[in-house]
């Protein structure tokens, strides 16, 4: 592939679709990794109809051998990966701690934190060897504020910030930048489906800017961190939340 290559893990999700559209618009060839095959094929069709170079691979987030194979295959096909965006994951399970089964707690940590680790491992060596590359992980406002019933989710998202700083330190001497975005409340169908309309409006009003983020606004932050304009930014977390919390 001649173009810059971006791998977007979770690229078929609510924020993911906005990110892959934005990156395709910036000229990246896109590899979408996502477990949701229907959504994956849909966004793939859209991108291709617009003349964008895109591929989709069905992946399980915590299946290490499968991810290794997928990254190896992408590298064989393209020769390089310029950008990795880790967006996959989610809250999955919400329980008070006394009712939180260990298996579910661990699952939340794995789909958010371990999946990020595994995908980063998939690109670190080739990026280091080319002395160039950008990795963008996804944290959350809950990393800072915590949330009722979200002990696992908040822990995983806070861990991603520390993981990002550590990996940034490791990769900086090799010309690779590693940063995180931290979206606040974002208007994806998955999130919006949890609320009825008055609840959703009320939630929006509780944010200083008076509304949730559009997925496209999160995508702009990803595009910025991926760009040369952010060439001296590494190890940082960029909060995109309309003033919900401050870093």
């Amino acid at each position: 592939m001649e173009a810059k290559v971006a791998v977007v893990n979770g690229g078929a999700g609510g924020i993911g679709r906005a990110v892959v559209r934005r990156l395709a618009g910036a000229g990246y060839g896109i590899f979408i990794l996502d477990k949701n095959q229907q959504a994956g094929r849909e966004i793939l069709d859209q991108l291709r109809k617009q003349g964008c170079q895109a591929e989709y691979r069905a992946t399980e987030l915590t299946n290490a051998p499968q991810l290794r194979n997928v990254f190896a295959e992408i590298l064989t096909a393209t020769g390089h990966i310029d950008l990795l965006v880790n967006l996959a994951g989610g809250t999955l399970h919400r329980h008070p701690i006394q009712e939180f089964p260990l298996s579910e707690w661990r699952e939340v940590i794995d789909v958010n934190l371990k999946a990020t680790f595994l995908c980063c491992q998939g690109v670190c060596r080739p990026m280091r060897e080319r002395r160039s590359g950008v990795i963008i992980n996804t944290s959350s406002n809950f990393a800072i504020t915590g949330g009722t019933g979200r002990t696992a989710y908040a822990a995983s998202k806070a861990a991603i910030i520390a993981f990002t700083k550590s990996l940034a330190t490791e990769m900086a001497p090799h010309g690779v930048r590693v940063n995180a975005i931290a979206p606040g409340l974002t208007a994806t169908t998955r999130v919006m489906s949890r609320y009825d309309e008055p609840e959703w409006r009320e939630l929006g009003r509780s944010i200083p800017m008076g509304r949730a983020a559009e997925p496209s606004e999160i995508a702009e932050a990803v595009a910025f961190l991926a760009s040369e304009e952010a060439g001296y930014i590494t190890g940082q977390t960029l909060h995109v939340n309309g003033g919900m919390i401050f870093n």
Binding site: E220, F224, T234, Q236, H239, N241
Partner: peptide, 19 residues
């Protein structure tokens, strides 16, 4: 592109301090 970012501090420092 930065329209929904407010109250934040962006550190552009080569990783000198990570915040």
């Amino acid at each position: 592109a930065g329209g929904f970012i407010t109250g934040q501090t962006i550190l552009a420092n080569g990783g000198g301090i990570m915040w």
